[in-house]
Every structure is written in C-alpha cells, then in structure tokens.
Simulated assay, not measured.
Amino acid sequence: MLMKGYCLCLLLQFGRIFGGNIEYDGWANINLQHALIASENPVFTERGNVTIQSLQTGLSTVYQKPLSQTDRVKLRDLAANNEFYQLKSIVTASDGSESVFISSVKACMLAESDLNDILSVSLDYSGKVVTVTLAVASTATCEGAVVPIDKLKEFSTSVYVRHPENGPVPDTITYTQKLEKQAKEKGEVKDNRSFLAKYWMYIVPVVIIMVLSSAANPDGAATGNNAAR
C-alpha cells in the first residue's frame, strides 16, 4: 500500500507539472542588446527594453530608441553581406534571478521587413522564462533587394508570451494496477486470500454440474437408496 500510494502521488505530481498552466503570476524585465558587426566575439550594444507586467496575460510594454545613423549603416552592411543579426536578451525575473538568451536571424530578412520583428518569450509551468527567441514578422526572402537606409530607423517589435502546452492527464489507476501485477509476477506480493476466495471460479462450475446431474436423474438416485437398504 505504501508503494502504491507513493506511485500515485508521483504521477499526480507529474500531471501537475505537465498540466499546461503556470502556477502563479509575476513579471519580467528583458533588456535587449544587439550586435551590428559580424564577429566571432560579437560586441553587443543597447537596443531597448521590454517589461512584461503579467506573465499570465502576456501584457507587456516595449521601449526601443531609434537607431543612430551609424547603426543604420552597420545594419545595412550586415544585410548586404548576408550576415546574421544577433540579439542578446537579459531577463530579470520578479524573484531577482537573471538569465541570458542569444538568438539570431538573417540581417537581410530583418532589413527587408523594415525592422518588424517578433520576440517570443516561453515559460515553464512555474512561470520561469526558459527561452527568448527572435523571428521576422514578414515573409522576407533575402532576394538581394537594396533596402533604403531611411527604412532602418526603428524596430517595431511584437512580444508573445508562450505558456506550456496542455499535456495528457496520466492514467494513475491503470498504471498502479500494472505495478501490482508486476509485483505479483515477481513474487513480491503475498496473496493472503482463503482457498475458496482464490479458486471459487473453478469450484462453482463443478457444483453446478453435480446439482444439474442429480436433478436430471432422480430415479437413479432413488434406486441407489433402495439398494443400500
């Protein structure tokens, strides 16, 4: 019984973890930095800030300053050379913990989309940010079109907070029955039932056959009684 209760509690715990909704609400702040020069050791500079006021609802505020003329030229050159644009996201949670995520997209796709991008913030069941990824909002294809530098003024970013997807509820009854069956097969569980409780399904048919045979041949029974006298 102790083992059975332990397994049941463990499965219920897994069901809670994979159930699909975060347990509590909170906030998170994301500092955005980007690298505008292709390098094995990129140098990140300030891009902006995202504040998620509610992790449950995904309500957020985005602040990003316009790009300087120098940064526009760097981004245009990055796109022309078919390099990657890299974004560093520094996440500060409501409990004070900090995590860093780096993602990238083709700079030419970002330039052709007129700097319209998407920031996806994924949470685990406890509401902790586990990934921050960057994507391009439009269907840019990097066909080599020259993007006027005037279109690279400021980022227009949409933020999406993604919760864990609903998982299947574990079938605890079937699983515990399976564990009991395996334990019996290994001899780990002693069957303390009485003889009748164990083998009634074999005894009852024999009794029924005997009763039916006696009822079908009453004369034979009477002859046997007379002979005995």
Rank of each mutant, 00 (worst) to 15 (best):
E185P: 05
L75D: 01
V204E: 07
T139E: 12
P170Q: 05
Q33W: 04
A93R: 13
P164A: 00
R47H: 13
R47P: 02
S158G: 13
K181P: 04
T139S: 09
Q56L: 11
S54N: 04
S104C: 07
D117C: 11
T131N: 13
T176G: 10
K198H: 01
E185G: 14
L152T: 06
A135R: 11
V132R: 06
N226P: 02
I203T: 03
L2D: 15
S39Y: 08
L115A: 09
Q69G: 07
D191E: 10
N116V: 07
N225K: 04
C108I: 07
D95C: 01
F155E: 10
P205C: 04
F84C: 12
P205R: 05
S68R: 04
K106Q: 07
N116K: 13
L32S: 02
T61P: 00
Y85F: 13
V132E: 11
I52L: 01
C142T: 02
I102G: 08
M1Y: 04
Q69C: 05
R16V: 02
W27Q: 02
E185M: 14
E143Y: 09
A216E: 07
T139A: 09
N21F: 03
K88E: 13
A216T: 08
P148Q: 15
G20N: 00
D171A: 08
L12A: 11
A215S: 10
L110P: 11
N49E: 10
A28L: 01
T223P: 00
V121G: 01
C108E: 15
F155A: 11
T172V: 14
N31M: 08
L212P: 09
S103T: 11
T157Y: 02
F101A: 03
F44S: 03
V206G: 06
D25E: 02
S94I: 01
V100D: 13
Y125R: 09
T141G: 03
T133Y: 06
Q33N: 08
M201S: 08
I118T: 08
E46K: 14
A79P: 01
V132D: 08
V204H: 03
D124L: 00
A111T: 08
S104A: 14
T133G: 08
P42R: 15
D114Y: 09
A216V: 12
S68L: 06
V207T: 04
